[in-house]
Design a protein around this nucleic acid. Structure first.
Length: 275
DNA sequence: ACTAAAGCCTGGCTGC
DNA sequence: TGCAGCCAGGCTTTAG
């Protein structure tokens, strides 16, 4: 499911719901969810820990615990958290459960089994393979026009593919990469190194704009389902090209085109994004 | 070193 | 209705 804005909102929800709570019991139901930890180790390293903070790094969620460890979570395509009463039934694809001292349980549900968790020592977080190579956060000073220019200058990849590379830019996925390029009027097939400096500056600005708008487009936590992100389709409100093949471009009216890059769909306006 | 392609899983939708 | 084939918002591993 999620790219940076969706992960940001799930992170915020988790922070509101579980910071200060203690995990009284943890269970890893599908071992493959956390391949770096055995189910026993997973349960033992979470039990009794209080959640100190929940933060986001790229598309990863980091829950810092009172016992010197951090629970790292990646939702990938279909992973989601569900916050329910302790007595409630698990969902059909529950792969891990955290029981909290507030009478609730937090389920990790993942239909496609792509999601990942890892319990790591907080002091060694920088060395965790999932995190160590990530690019700077888009909203940090390190994600400067100079950084982006230098990074793209060294890549002969098509710009759309370079934007999906989390070692170059974090947080963009297939939707927001297409959207940022459309806003910046850049052809998705253009080799990254051929972008002029002013166009890099504009691209950076539009990346921040589209991510910011999607984050601002928050919705209410649905207590009924307990799903921390029940807003599938939030991106609809900011998407101008994604899944709009054949529809008129909101800027010039030309029909939006769909092409394949890296075995994935890219949507763009052939007139606005000629080069 | 880089880049492209295959692979991981399940389920929903489309067209025959 | 049944079924094959395609598609899905991510990332890693393998091959070149």
């Amino acid at each position: 499911m999620p790219e940076l804005p969706e992960v940001e909102i799930v992170t915020k929800r988790l922070r509101e719901l579980i910071v200060g709570k203690t995990i009284i019991k943890a269970q890893l139901i599908r071992a493959g969810l956390s391949p770096e930890n055995s189910p026993r180790q997973f349960a033992a390293s979470l039990k009794g820990a209080r959640v100190e903070d929940v933060a986001r790094r790229g598309k990863h969620i980091l829950a810092r615990l009172s016992n010197g460890r951090t629970l790292i979570i990646h939702l990938r395509m279909t992973g989601r958290f569900i916050y329910l009463d302790r007595e409630a039934e698990n969902t059909p694809h529950t792969h891990a459960v955290l029981w909290l001292d507030d009478g609730k349980k937090l389920l990790f549900d993942d239909q496609r089994h792509f999601g990942l968790m890892m319990v790591a020592r907080t002091a060694e977080l920088d060395r965790v393979k999932y995190l160590s190579k990530l690019a700077p956060e888009p909203f940090s000073p390190e994600f400067s026009p100079e950084y982006l220019r230098d990074t793209l200058k060294r890549s002969s990849q098509q710009i759309k593919l370079a934007l999906l590379d989390q070692t170059k830019v974090v947080g963009l996925g297939n939707i927001y990469a297409s959207e940022a390029l459309h806003r910046a009027k850049i052809n998705p097939r253009l080799p990254a190194k051929r972008l002029s400096q002013p166009r890099v500056v504009l691209l950076r600005k539009e990346i921040l704009a589209v991510l910011g708008e999607a984050i601002a487009n928050d919705n209410q936590f649905d207590v009924e389902t307990g799903d921390l992100d029940s807003s599938y389709g939030r991106y609809d409100h900011v998407a101008r090209v994604y899944e709009r093949e054949g529809q008129p471009c909101s800027v010039c009216g030309a029909p939006i085109r769909r092409i394949t890059q890296g075995a994935r769909s890219t949507y763009y306006c052939p007139r606005c994004q000629r080069r």
